[in-house]
Design a protein around this nucleic acid. Sequence first.
DNA 1: CAGGATCCGTAGGGATACTG
DNA 2: CAGTATCCCTACGGATCCTG
Lengths: 121, 121
Amino acid sequence: MKKNPEQCQVVVALDMIVGKWKPIIIQHLLSGDILRFNELRRLMPDITQRMLTLHLRELEEQDIVQRVVYPQIPPKVEYSITEYGKSLGPVMDAMHHWGAAHVEHMKLKNEQGASLDGEAN
Amino acid sequence: MKKNPEQCQVVVALDMIVGKWKPIIIQHLLSGDILRFNELRRLMPDITQRMLTLHLRELEEQDIVQRVVYPQIPPKVEYSITEYGKSLGPVMDAMHHWGAAHVEHMKLKNEQGASLDGEAN
DNA sequence: CAGGATCCGTAGGGATACTG
DNA sequence: CAGTATCCCTACGGATCCTG
C-alpha cells in the first residue's frame, strides 16, 4: 500500500499536526516554554491524562517534542519543542492567521443571514 | 458546549481542511481549474464517489468551493475554488513547503538509522 | 507526579448497489 | 453524469481506575 509518492506534501504536513490536541500542545510549546506534564494539563483543562501522554509520545516520535525524564521521586518530566519542531512555526502562524480571518468571515456571514431573516418578516 | 472562545484559531483553520481528501481537493481547485465531478474523481483515483460528494458538500458549505449545476441531461456540475477559498493558498503553501522539508528530514533520519545498524554489526 | 491498563462510544471513512 | 442509499468497520478519543 503506497502513500502517494511525490504527491501532496500537504497531507504529509497535516499528518504531523492533526489530532484533537496536538496543535494546541504544539502551540504551547512553540512559545519556547519548557513544561512539565501537569503544567500542560493545566493549560488544557479538558484533555485527559491518557490523551496528553499519547499525543506527547507521538510528537516525541515525530521529533517535534523533546521529552526529558528526571529519574527522581516524585517523577519529573519536562517537555519542550525541538529545533526541528520550531520549523513548524511558520505553518502554525499561517493557520493561526487564517483562522482569525475566518472567524471574522463567519461573523459577517451570520450578520448577513440575520439581516436577511429580518427582511423576510 | 463552548468551543475555546478566543483561543487557538489554529484549530479553527484545521477544522476547515482536515478530512482524508479535503486538502487534496482544495489543492486541485486552488490551481484555479474548474473541474467536473468525474474529473475530480480521475484526479483522485482512490476516492469513492460517496466521499467525494460528502467532502465537496462540506467545502461548499464552508464557502471554500463553489458548486455550479447545469440543469441538463446528462447532468453537469462544475466545482471551483471561491474567492474566499483562495485565501487558503498561503496556508496550503506553508504546509506544502514544510511537508517537502519533512520528507527530507525523514530521509536523513533513516539513513542515520541504517548506518547505526551497520555499526552495530 | 507522571503515567499505564481497560473498557467503551462514536464519527469518519470504505464497499457496494441503485437512480434521475 | 453525478450523485443517493445502506451497511459495515476501525481508529480516535473519552472515562475510569490503578501504580512506581
